[in-house]
Design a protein around this nucleic acid. Structure first.
Length: 137
DNA sequence: GCCAACGTTGGC
DNA sequence: GCCAACGTTGGC
C-alpha cells in the first residue's frame, strides 16, 4: 500500500472543489511530466494520498483516495499521458504547512521539501504517519 | 514580481 | 544524441 501527494494550485483546482465532487470523485488530469506519470501508473485503487495546495496556502489540507486506476488523459492530444480518478476522504484537522514540514527533521527527505515542482509525489509510510499526526488526525 | 530549478524543444 | 534556448512552476 503506497502513499502519495498531489499538488494543485487552489486557483486551478482546490480542496473545496474536490470535496464538492463527492464520493464519485473527479479525474486528476493535466499531468505532463514523466516522473509524475510513472507514479500515476503505479497507483492502485484504494491507495491514499495528501492533497497539497501550492502557491497559495502552501499546505497539505486533506486526504484523497484513488478510485480508478490509470487511464488515458483525453485532454492530452499527444496521447502520451494519463490520469487517475480521486475522491476526497477527509480534511486534516489543521493544515500542515510547507514551513512546518521543512522544520520537522524527520521529514527532511520528503520529496515535497526537496523537489517541490513534482506534481505527483510518493510519500513513505513514516512520512504519511508524521504528516497525519501534525494535521491532527 | 523575481528567479532558481527543472523539463522540453529543436538545431546541429 | 548532445546541448543551448526557452517556457513553466512554485517558493520566496
Amino acid at each position: 500500500m503506497a502513499y502519495w501527494l498531489y499538488k494543485s494550485e487552489p486557483s486551478t483546482w482546490s480542496w473545496d472543489q474536490q470535496v464538492e465532487a463527492g464520493p464519485t470523485g473527479t479525474h486528476w488530469n493535466g499531468v505532463r511530466n514523466h516522473v509524475a506519470k510513472k507514479h500515476l501508473q503505479t497507483m492502485e485503487v484504494g491507495e491514499r494520498g495528501f492533497f497539497y495546495h501550492s502557491n497559495e496556502g502552501k499546505a497539505v489540507v486533506g486526504i484523497v483516495e484513488v478510485i480508478r486506476p490509470y487511464y488515458p488523459d483525453d485532454s492530452d492530444e499527444t496521447g502520451r499521458f494519463g490520469m487517475v480518478d480521486l475522491r476526497a476522504v477527509a480534511p486534516l484537522g489543521r493544515p500542515v504547512t510547507l514551513e512546518a514540514i521543512k522544520a520537522e527533521p524527520r521529514l527532511k527527505d520528503m520529496v515535497l521539501a526537496n523537489n517541490s515542482r513534482l506534481s505527483v509525489q510518493p510519500v513513505s509510510a513514516a512520512e504519511w504517519a508524521i504528516v497525519r499526526e501534525m494535521g491532527g488526525l
